[in-house]
Design a protein around this nucleic acid. Structure first.
Length: 586
RNA sequence: GGAAGUAUGGUGUAAUGGUAGCACAACAGAUUUUGGUUCUGUUUGUCGUGGUUCGAAUCCACGUACUUCUACCA
């Protein structure tokens, strides 16, 4: 009678990560009215990459899990770097990953509010206009181990600051001439508290607000207040912002005070929580360095399948589900981890195995002649599209006397554990006959000794359902395409772009050794794999011409592939997503 | 010389004072008309030294190592 109880699988308990624990604790305490709201705040100055995907999965994931919204908020406080083009790319990438935002907002929506708050802070003696140069301010700032010094302008009259602040935005003030700073503590251990800059003069139109503003707010002065005004409860960001948190909290406190928010200081406010950035072996995520790869033509654009951008991953044939499964596996902690590419690939393969339709493609062809099959005969077989998913159906393939098989599937002098073709050896041709090579004269060679043709005889009645179909042989099953019925295709095989495990550190260390203070393209070339792209001609079965870009395919026994954007039925192009796991060693 | 954060097998991550578990990787075997998938098994770990406790990966102290912080970037 206990058997029934055992049969019920226990609900798999997944432990909560530290952020989920914190959210649940906040919820239990009734903070922010028991609500969860998040935001994903990209700066629209470049393409999203796999590191952003980790943040996206958390920001949107937490809102979804706890019944709140996640807004998409463009962090557009620096008109010098940002552009509309990126906004669209960012939206497309998030949608492709399968997330939905509540509203699309912009930091620039808050420019007026931020300005008004700044004016009020000046009036309250919490901010002042500093007329020193950037160099002077930097020199005064001190170092982490030495306190800074107060600016001579720190205690200037409120009216003076107010007047100058207005001039900063007039369009007539020379950029760099003056800045608005918060009056906090020049001796603080936290460098961000040493009178941080709130506003700088740029005299530059903003792609959204036009010529309305000439002075623009800084990130630190912007982020917390936007979160607060928007109703964000949990502001999730990466670990390098830990030391910004006290400043984030301070500006939120000030905004609450000025707003006359009578809720207690520790309630009705956003809380910043930091998690570890994604870091993967053999990839590099620095935006500046990726830009260099594009500009120097090391790769063919931001969505070159060797790039770590979301758009490149899409083009390469990784699935959103596979990417998300990987992110789920690595988790969110406070440890500066370096994740292995093998974990990513295993997550992707696991997903693709369920989705990809199986086709035959021969990448390194050599001709196999079935000597006892008539010249002009053709047989048609039914091939299963995906053994992992019966609903995917079947398609037809054709067989004839001359076939292309992989060069690797034949060896004259084979090691003991080689279970493919060779003198006197038998293999199963996938979906077709078992064939046997003769002991003697099993292949023809050219003058240089290269094999140009292999000969084999089919063994009758060995096809599916026939009398000898269950015949046991030592050989494996190999794939093939019929010479007369296949089509030619361009195949782009990608290998890792970086030859070292941790290009982030290796490139930067090398650059320093060269006495440079900035990484340049030559530093990077030192570690770039010169053979990261291999373009080759291949023979694929005809059914492949029906496949659309980004369809998930498996070239049987080789790997996962997807048609490129530029692929057409007349000129097929396939990108390699990832190889199949290969357990065969010599 | 300061401050903040972090430390669990090769890698990543659980265990929230009470049996150190999971995944990837590696290795071995079974199944297989993909050397894929699936299944089974094996190997490998709490940074160090003290302390508190019946009991410590977990709490405390002191070390050590790594990360971050000195942009008019975000």
């Amino acid at each position: 009678m206990d058997k029934n109880m055992e049969a019920v699988a226990p609900e798999e308990k997944k432990s909560l990560n530290f952020i989920e624990q914190k959210i649940e604790a906040d919820l239990a305490e009734g903070k922010n009215g028991g609500k969860v709201q998040t935001r994903f705040p990209p700066e629209p100055n470049g393409y999203l990459h796999i590191g952003h995907a980790k943040a996206i999965a958390l920001d949107f994931g937490m809102a979804e899990k706890y019944g709140g919204v996640c807004n998409l908020r463009m962090d557009d406080t620096n008109p010098q770097k940002e552009d509309m083009e990126y906004v669209n790319a960012i939206k497309r990438d998030i949608e492709w990953l399968g997330f939905k935002w509540g509203n699309i907002l912009y930091a620039s929506d808050y420019f007026q509010q931020l300005w008004d708050l700044a004016v009020e802070l000046i009036k309250r003696g919490k901010a002042y206009v500093d007329e020193q140069t950037a160099e002077e301010i930097a020199a005064q700032k001190g170092t982490p181990t030495q306190p800074g010094q107060n600016s001579p302008y720190r205690d200037r009259p409120v009216e003076e600051s107010l007047k100058l602040f207005n001039e900063m935005n007039s369009g007539k003030m020379e950029p760099g001439k003056m800045v608005l700073r918060a009056k906090i503590d020049m001796a603080s251990d936290n460098m961000h508290f040493r009178d941080p800059i709130m506003y700088r003069v740029m005299n530059m139109p903003h792609w959204r607000t036009g010529n309305t503003w000439n002075a623009y707010p800084m990130y630190d002065y912007t982020h917390g207040q936007c979160d607060y005004w928007e109703g964000v409860t949990h502001s999730l960001c990466t670990l390098e912002f830990v030391s910004h948190r006290p400043l984030y909290d301070l500006f939120v406190d000030w905004a609450k005070e000025v707003a006359g928010d009578d809720k207690p200081m520790d309630d009705n406010r956003p809380r910043q929580t930091e998690f570890n950035k994604l870091n993967l072996t053999h990839i590099l995520l620095s935006k500046r360095n990726l830009l260099m790869l594009v500009n120097e033509g090391v790769v063919n654009g931001w969505d070159d399948p060797r790039m770590p951008t979301i758009s490149a991953f899409r083009r390469r044939g990784y699935s959103p589900e596979g990417i998300k499964a990987f992110i789920d596996k690595i988790g969110y902690t406070k440890f500066d981890a370096l994740n292995q590419m093998s974990l990513f690939e295993s997550a992707v393969r696991d997903d693709l195995n369920k989705r990809a339709q199986r086709v035959s493609a021969v990448l390194n062809p050599v001709k196999l002649v079935i000597t006892n099959f008539p010249e002009d005969a053709v047989e048609t077989y039914t091939a299963i599209n995906n053994p992992e998913n019966e609903a995917d159906g079947t398609h037809e393939i054709e067989f004839s006397r001359e076939l292309w098989i992989e060069r690797d599937d034949f060896m004259e002098d084979a090691p003991k554990k080689f279970f493919r073709l060779g003198p006197g050896k038998e293999v199963r041709l996938k979906n077709s006959y078992i064939v046997r090579c003769p002991e003697e004269n099993c292949c023809k060679k050219d003058a240089d000794g290269n094999i140009v043709e292999i000969y084999a005889e089919l063994i009758p009645e060995t096809k599916t359902g026939e009398a000898n179909c269950n015949m046991k042989i030592k050989g494996k099953t190999i794939h093939w395409v019929s010479c007369k019925h296949c089509v030619e295709a361009e195949v782009r095989n990608y290998d890792r772009l970086w030859m070292v495990e941790n290009p982030r550190d290796e490139v930067s260390n090398y650059s320093k050794e060269q006495g440079k203070n900035r990484i340049d393209i030559e530093d990077m070339r030192k570690f770039i794999n010169p053979e990261s792209l291999e373009i080759k001609k291949a023979y694929v079965e005809k059914w492949c011409t029906t496949k659309k870009p980004l369809d998930y395919l498996q070239f049987q026994r080789i790997g996962y592939y997807t048609p490129d954007y530029d692929s057409t039925p007349e000129h097929l192009i396939f990108n390699k997503t990832v190889g199949l796991k290969d357990n065969w060693k010599k």
